[in-house]
Design a binder for these strands. Structure first.
Lengths: 317, 317
DNA sequence: CACGCCGATAACCGAATGGTTAGGACTTCT
DNA sequence: AGAAGTCCTAACCATTCGGTTATCGGCGTG
């Protein structure tokens, strides 16, 4: 009554090759075997998925949706065996979730330093997630540690957040910005955390009741700040991370009733007995002077071999 | 002889709950059923996956690797049905792959304009990918269109690249940068495309034989430029995208034997008969004046409801 | 128009999946 | 030590999955 990986594999191959017969040849089975695998999927999902199109097969819209998902599933299926086999004697893995602000400046150098400190005993990677996503990924063990706001919403989840670093949130704007009207009417330039209601940025936007029409979302903080420097509006920022732009005079601080404000980054893990070994290590590492130093000063980049592209948790479904 | 989704589902549940019995209760089946599902996985993968740990079960390293993958697979499995059902009468989907440079400034406003132009007939999303990834994702129909370098490596792949926009690559540095020695010895500040040998940045680094030790990778272009403005080194850039920083005098152009250079963005799709309808539409849209305008001027952000976080293709395995 | 190719369907079959109950080995708590 | 709980294994059974060969219907092409 449930889909099967072989069925999905057959479907993916047919969709890719545009032919049932060709797929059967590649798989080394008879053609009705493939045909029936697809028939089973059709019935289970209630969609034709693949329809005859002249010589070969074309995907319906539903089939196209399935295709992306099914491709991932079969790829993951083969990954699984490789991953488990490779795990024998391999370094333990640490998956760190970070809020987008942290991701941009801190996550990469932090993990780089962490990896250097433990010299191959840990294999660390980071992913960007919203607060809501962190709340579900951590208890489900899809990640080991989260770095961002306090996550102890409900004690039942078994999550423990501990303060790591206090910081100041300021509002910055270009040199020639003239404050006119209430802050809620200004143009706000934010990074993607502006769409996360539980983030600092989200709270700030809510605090000033900034209407959607006054918000421009940029793909990252630096781009938002560059736009602010160009006089397009105001942007929230962590004080230590914009110090260079402030020092050079590209940006200046704008005071409001809600800013400057102090906030705190927390490290969140499962409770101690359920906590994984890598999670324990990173949690300890965060309190070392090295880590403190990294978090206070803007990143200076990492060497290419160490670079890991950021990973976003949601994939196109 | 192959893993089953129900087996993986049982494994995930046991790992999450730390107990076979509890998982069996949740699933509403007898406890040996769950136990045997896990036994099958153990035998198939050659790893204990879950070992007794006092009262409950703890994951081995291999089990921990499997857990992330298996969780995704079962989640995707339930997504699949929802996605196919939702596809009835839903807008067609367009998945755009972009090089990281384009992703940062152009992809979001471009898709925003595209979506506005077609008013809900298309549902567009974008993902960042390296050139090598584009080459495999497009023929496999995991994406519809790619925007970036010329991809016609081998004609056999069925990919067609067409030029979209010429642009100038320049090298920028802070105001007080003093050229000393060969460009290969300078500190280079690049975004993640520096790790992609087929990108403009990668080619440039290779052209100057810049050693790894002289390269600092930043999470995005804007951050690399900010570092360059701070005097930390030189950074490659698309001329039209740094015009603001040049105009404000934060950055200046540094001439070398290889820069300024002209290059071109291409739109790549499958050959016309295999091309999807959304791919056709976007390809046409790219030649409109609106799109040209967008690609020439740096983005100004989008409104929150339109914002889609960028999607990276690689997931943690 | 007929031929050939392709895909769907039918009938059949072996194997293993997924479920049950019964019982043994081990840890933990009283 | 004994009781209770948990996990593994064994034996058994229904289902269906995945494979085969044979046949039918539709579509381009000669």
């Amino acid at each position: 009554m449930t889909m099967t990986l072989t069925q999905l594999g057959a479907f993916v191959l047919v969709a890719r090759l545009g032919s049932v017969r060709a797929a059967a040849d590649v798989l080394g089975v008879s053609e009705p075997a493939v045909s029936r695998a697809i028939a089973a999927l059709r019935q289970h999902l209630g969609d034709q998925l693949l329809v005859r199109d002249g010589n070969g097969m074309a995907m319906t819209e539903g089939g196209s949706r399935l295709f992306g998902i099914a491709s991932q599933m079969v790829a993951l299926g083969s990954d699984a065996e490789a991953a488990v086999r490779a795990a024998k004697g391999a370094p333990a893995r640490l998956r760190l979730l970070v809020a987008s602000t942290i991701a941009e400046f801190i996550a990469t150098p932090l993990l780089e330093a962490f990896g250097r400190r433990w010299q191959g005993t840990f294999d660390a990677s980071s992913g960007v997630a919203s607060v809501a996503e962190m709340r579900v990924l951590l208890p489900n063990r899809l990640a080991d540690v989260a770095l961002g706001p306090d996550l102890r919403g409900d004690a039942s989840s078994g999550l423990i957040s501990e303060p790591v670093l206090k910081y100041r949130i300021v509002l910055v704007a270009g040199r020639d910005f003239r404050a006119a009207g209430a802050p809620g009417r200004w143009p706000w330039l934010v990074d993607s955390s502006g769409t996360d209601p539980d983030s600092d940025t989200g709270r700030l936007l809510r605090g000033f009741r900034v209407p959607e029409s006054s918000i421009r979302v940029f793909p990252n903080q630096t781009a938002a700040w560059a736009a602010a420097a160009d006089g397009l509006g105001v942007a929230p920022a962590v004080a230590t991370l914009v110090s260079r732009q402030l020092r050079r005079g590209e940006l200046r601080v704008v005071d409001t009733e809600l800013t400057p404000a102090t906030a705190c980054w927390y490290v969140t893990t499962l409770n101690p007995e359920r906590r994984s070994a890598p999670a324990r290590s990173l949690r300890n590492f965060l309190s070392t002077p090295d880590a403190m130093q990294l978090m206070c000063s803007p990143g200076t980049g990492v060497s290419p071999s160490r670079f890991r592209p950021p990973v976003y948790v949601t994939i196109w479904s």
